[in-house]
Nucleic acid binder design. Structure first.
Lengths: 176, 176
DNA sequence: GGTTTTAAGTTGCAACTGGAAACTTAAATA
DNA sequence: TATTTAAGTTTCCAGTTGCAACTTAAAACC
């Protein structure tokens, strides 16, 4: 039993889809390598909403069984989900977010907020709130080390070496 | 000339790929509808780095010409990029980020930071910095309305109606 | 104990999407 | 006018997706 998954992996390995940008020392291509597939974020969203079992993902997402199987395996391989047999019912498998998976929440909420603002147009329901005071969370934004909110015009790229040599240079080129 | 793009659109329309989640009033599926394709974020990254012309995207990304053409068209359709003929050289077309596109920067940086932390393992080069003081930006995080940083355990979903009726209830269920 | 049900995953097949390379179109330049 | 450049299109083939039916193993039922 179960050699088809191996075949699928072999097939992937034999002419492995070229990494999105293997030269760049940039986290974005690496993040997309793990999360760039069509269903990955939707599976993650379901996981954040407490979905843990194969059949429940299936129903929540309306995804094909084989694709779900493949995506869950990849997310487990990537260390974003962990796969565990249920103690009381050994047929059941629980997929749970790892710390690495939980750490994707800011990125996911930023995307969600963008979609709400620019595509949905109205506040989505339900609203993500702070459980301590019940208030909606703030918009995810880029902030400086001292907490000021930054816009694209306030940002610049600096070389690591330059940054270490001269922490606060006089003039910096703007990115945009 | 130029009927192939129309054909492509017709082909799309005839059995249009079903939206990722058309029922949910959620921004995430909508965001993924616009940005979920394999190359979309990499194109956006290049655009944020000042790439504006077809051939330059081609070289920067190592993407196939037809796929780039198709993705740029979709990003323009989605209102994330705008397409403009250069004034001085009418062959050249400039793709520039719109405000809607610029607003994806927090999501992109959150993904990049995640990739750096969990996949790259070391700080990527170059570093995104505040141009006012040259310091690296803070980690993108989820903050409450009053600025406290929140973890997944601090978060809860609330219904819009409930939120309006009772802004600060006594007990709230945690999401995770 | 034997049958049925449930959970998870696999297979085969048809349709669709992606990528490489050659081709087209139109504008600029020599 | 001939050539080059920028952007985009077409062709063709390989790879991926999705559906439906099938398999496997454990639990529940009778």
């Amino acid at each position: 039993m179960g050699y088809a998954q191996d075949d699928m992996e072999k097939a992937n390995a034999s002419h492995m889809r070229e990494p999105l940008c293997d030269i760049a020392q940039c986290g974005l291509p690496l993040a997309l390598e793990a999360m760039g597939e069509r269903w990955s974020f939707m599976i993650l969203r379901a996981a954040f909403n407490g979905v843990r079992h194969f059949e429940d993902f299936l129903e929540a997402l309306g995804i094909a069984r084989n694709i779900l199987s493949n995506r869950l395996s990849r997310l487990v391989e990537a260390g974003i989900l962990k796969r565990e047999h249920c103690a009381n019912d050994r047929r059941r498998i629980e997929y749970r977010l790892t710390p690495k998976g939980l750490d994707l929440l800011p990125a996911m909420l930023a995307l969600r907020q963008w979609g709400e603002k620019w595509e949905l147009g109205v506040p989505a329901n339900p609203v993500m709130c702070d459980s301590r005071d019940g208030q909606p969370i703030a918009t995810i934004s880029i902030v400086a080390h001292d907490g000021r909110v930054l816009t694209p015009a306030d940002l610049t790229w600096r070389e690591l070496s330059e940054l270490q040599a001269d922490p606060a240079p006089a003039a910096l080129r703007k990115v945009l």
